[in-house]
Write a protein that binds this DNA or RNA. Structure first.
Lengths: 147, 147
DNA sequence: GTCAGTGCAAAGCTTTTGCAGCGCG
DNA sequence: CGCGCTGCAAAAGCTTTGCACTGAC
């Protein structure tokens, strides 16, 4: 199932309004930018990109926007070695994981339904009420392997 | 296969010596403490515990020790939401993952060979030369679920 | 003696918080 | 025309680095 950025953006705006949030400047900029992304972005990257586009947005507002969005389940927060990255969340609950190149920092998404099933089972075996999981593969990407 | 803390400690000391490191104070304290642990500890927790034992060890030395140990593959570094945790690495390559309770912060280890196989396969499919992976389940532990 | 290793303090990063002002509804 | 949201700046964690000193080899 495909979930386009445009659709996500509309969905996010609707959810924000439904939660009683104003259609404000900084948060809207963050939503727009996230909707354009193929993969996850750090708060710093979001801030930098918005600055580059001449949107004078404070980094604090980026963090606040991401906090609200994550609270509404509209974005996923992914920890990748000390820094957090954020990406649009598919409302169907589907999600993917990431492989990160230790050479160039490139992030590649991947998914695996069987993996999800196994993670579910592992949580249940422990008696945990699991509501999420973080999974990151670390290694060298195809491009960096070649050189 | 079981890998006792005592044996790990001896192994770590031997590896450190082999790598040309001196048998110094702070690092030795860190190795001893880690060898006693069932699960992973943060640098801060290591520092606090050593202080409690009246070993006057600087937090910087703890980080430096952990850095050396991780470089030699003697400890695994696990990112758990903003802070790094460290635990002895089984030299056979076997390892486990963690479930973390969002209520009480308790960390529970678990392992699953089939999961490992799947992760391996996922990396290969991407063309990545995977040399490790981070996996953390987030949720509520059995004790906290009850209350 | 040498120099790896150390403790302390200061700096670096990411993230959070305090605050006065602006502007959406 | 109130109060939600904002930018800025300062503060709060976690981690790293600079530096002079100590002690293992």
């Amino acid at each position: 199932m495909e979930w386009s950025g445009i659709r996500w953006r509309a969905h996010a705006k609707a959810e924000l309004e439904r939660a009683g949030h104003r259609s404000a400047g900084a948060r809207e900029e963050v939503v727009t930018l996230l909707g354009e992304q193929a993969c996850c972005l750090s708060a710093q990257e979001i801030h930098d990109e918005l600055r580059r586009r001449e949107r004078r947005v404070g980094i604090a507002s980026v963090y606040r926007a991401l906090d609200v969005l994550a609270g509404l389940g509209l974005v996923h927060r992914i920890d990748v070695g000390g820094t957090a990255c954020y990406e649009p969340a598919d409302p169907s609950g589907e999600h993917h994981h990431h492989a990160i190149c230790s050479e160039c920092g490139r992030r590649a998404p991947f998914e695996d339904p069987e993996l999800e099933r196994l993670l579910d089972r592992a949580g249940r075996k422990l008696g945990y009420a699991v509501d999420g999981h973080d999974l990151v593969l670390r290694g060298t990407c195809p491009d960096c392997v070649r050189s």
